[in-house]
Amino acid sequence: MPDNADNAGQPGIPHIEFRDVVKKFGDNTVLNDLNFTVAKGERVTLIGPSGSGKTTILRLVMTLEELTGGYVFVGGDPLQYEDRGGKRQRVPDKVRRRTTTQIGMVFQHFNLFPNMSVLENIIEAPLHVMGLSKAEAIPKAEALLEKVGMADKRDFNPSQLSGGQQQRVAIARALAMDPEVLLLDEVTSALDPELVGEVLTVLKDIAEETDISMLIVTHEMQFARDVSDRVMMFDEGRIVEEGAPEKIFSSPESQRTQDFLRAVL
């Protein structure tokens, strides 16, 4: 398991790096001078009360939010802003999209395209972003549907599926782009309780079978414990405490973490 603290001394660059990140919504400062890294293949779960900035962190990696200050790097490439000759400059959209191609995201509300079938949802980006042919993209999509247990629904419309099924398709859609980083944003929060299990099972399998780096925001503490290499406790835009899941969940040091875990567990 890669340990964050050792990264500075290693030649390899961190897979995700937040450097002096500031994020404000109007006058409201959500993240203030945030620094952290995620190593290649590492699974990091962000926990903490709502409004603590966890989802904002994921959305910054996916470049869905404008970075107010600082830099975010993925695989060493700057995402929205780069430092050019001491000046903070905007990265051109086309360059940014080349970097974000290696990032996949699964959303709380699935966000499948309702005007496309399940299969079309999955092959859209591989065809038009990765440049695969249909002959390459379709078998790949079918294999992914098999993996998430949705092979028999390939020609269905998203509206004909349950929430759990839609989310499994959304996971397959994200994986179809061969992401090196996967962002999971409260992927079970919008699901009926009895559908949560099927989605988490799929994600656990993927965590075991691949070495994709993952940044996870979840309220499912057992899932966090099962898949994470490291857990970071957030409050008011700061990392209150971080460490291996066993340590955070069994013997948290910070009073804030203890209070939070007592409330959610």
Binding site: M62, R97, T100, T101, M105, F107, F113, M116
Partner: peptide, 22 residues
């Protein structure tokens, strides 16, 4: 819905393609 625009962005589809396909 905003989520559709976000999904387009998350799949790195170009804004033009996202507009006409989604």
């Amino acid at each position: 819905p905003r989520g559709q625009y976000e999904a387009i962005s998350a799949l790195s589809l170009s804004p033009m393609r996202g507009m006409f396909r989604v």
